[in-house]
Design a protein around this nucleic acid. Structure first.
Ligand SMILES: [Zn+2]
Ligand SMILES: [Zn+2]
Ligand SMILES: [Zn+2]
Ligand SMILES: [Zn+2]
Lengths: 156, 156
DNA sequence: ACGAGATTGAAACATTATAACGTTTCCAGG
DNA sequence: CCTGGAAACGTTATAATGTTTCAATCTCGT
């Protein structure tokens, strides 16, 4: 994420937390910044490595606690299929997300497609199931990678 | 799964594999049986524990290899949000599944809702994204648990 | 029988995540 | 200003999940 957009995202996050009485401490803010600065999703231990830059010795719970907070506040998302985390692309707006995850370049597109959410809700309701936490992730090939690469059946 | 249904599922699996030239070895068959006999999804190490009953000392790769085979053949599914595996409820029929996972009792309903699949495909296609492996899991409360328990806002 | 390829056994290792416990920091009320 | 309770943080150890590696064995077509 570009520097300006990053600053704006962090400001939005701070405002949201203030408004909710939640504390976006320096450490949590730092984790959010690391997440948002990166295009790709990051594993907890990758975040930890970046947090440690500057010779501080931090342990796994530190980063997992910060992530729990960010997930609760809707400032970050967990990609279950990747065991990784990503900064939310539109924090504040309550949203059910779907993720398009490129298996080649690792980039992620965060959607909030109402049609998909509705269909899922319908399917669940029809079985008397009350959905609380949807996990919708499509692993595949993004537009950029599809055009940059030869077709799957192209003779090299 | 009841004994009869289990036997039928295993026979179907054997027939499918034979037809494809894939080898449903005793070990793989045993893992499939463990998966299908159980209502709930099972972690790899839970399966391993059951495989070991009879004092054999098996290592993790044994069960992961069997699971890889079953996943490839569409005889089992992996629940990404649970780090667990489940036997397919309708093997043979090519299908994209969605899973309703009860957070209370652990039971799983495997859907193959065409409307959901289509909506997802549309949303992806609109972004030039070619989905290869969909992960759709709704965590929530199943009908049985909802009726058995007091409402969330019920004063105890 | 022979050999290529698939399957299995076994040990070590890598990665991801949490439990448990103590300390520090923050903030509201006295 | 004190002070007590809650939230946040530090630290160690450990649980849970998944992979690499290499050697031994089995299967099947020739
Ligand atoms: Zn989001
Ligand atoms: Zn890509
Ligand atoms: Zn299935
Ligand atoms: Zn239930």
């Amino acid at each position: 994420m570009a520097a300006e957009a990053l600053a704006r995202t962090l400001d939005t996050a701070a405002a949201l937390c203030a408004q909710r009485g939640a504390r976006l401490t320096p450490q949590r803010r730092r984790v959010l910044e690391i997440l948002c600065r990166t295009e790709r999703p990051l594993g907890a231990y990758e975040i930890l490595d970046q947090l440690r830059e500057g010779s501080r010795a931090l342990a796994p719970p530190t980063v997992y606690r910060a992530l729990d907070f960010l997930l609760e506040q809707g400032l970050a998302h967990r990609l279950e299929s990747q065991h990784a985390f990503i900064g939310c692309r539109h924090p504040g707006c309550a949203h059910q997300s779907q993720f398009l995850i490129c298996a080649r370049c690792g980039r992620v597109i965060e959607l909030s497609d109402a049609g998909v959410s509705e269909r899922l809700a319908m399917a669940a309701r029809a079985r008397g199931f009350e959905a609380e936490r949807p996990v919708v992730e499509l692993i595949g090939i993004c537009a950029g990678c599809a055009s940059a690469e030869p077709a799957p059946d192209c003779p090299s």
